[in-house]
Design a protein around this nucleic acid. Sequence first.
DNA 1: GCCAACGTTGGC
DNA 2: GCCAACGTTGGC
Length: 171
Amino acid sequence: MRYWLMKSEPGEFSLEDLRRSPEGTAAWDGVRNFQARNLMRDEMRAGDTVLFYHSNARPPAVVGLARVVGGAYPDDTAWDPDSPYYDPRSSPENPRWVMVDIRFERALPAPVPLAELKRLPALQDMLLLQKGQRLSVQPVRAAEFRAIVAHADRLARGQGGGGGRGRAGRS
DNA sequence: GCCAACGTTGGC
DNA sequence: GCCAACGTTGGC
């Protein structure tokens, strides 16, 4: 099972929008970048876990978890002239873009803002944090995934920081 | 709103 | 194949 991070602008499609979708499931359409497409098409599998990231938000943050429902299939919004994702170079006979279905899993107990991610030593090499990096679909290492979820739990308990281990011997 | 960084396009 | 121009992403 692999881990991914997928970006969406909450004004376009938020984690809450996913939660309210039928069966909590929606097609991740509109990806128009070859590298992101190839990852969805060639690497994503049913059962993979997705970190749902709100980009262009205040603050930008990882806000929840989702599950990949199945493998990639043609993105039909590319064939719709009325769609903002229309691409005349794609056709049903020769689809250029693909999408996957993802299902809402849960909101994190607290969003983990980008600034917090940057503070965590375990995430120093995370793709999201590399300069100039802007892939909307990106692989995440298992250790990175665990660090983010653990930090969300810490933030929810109001323990904020350090990015380190929990305090020992609390009473 | 600004702008750095990046991807894509298309002329040559 | 090169590369300038352009459009987009996305944090700030």
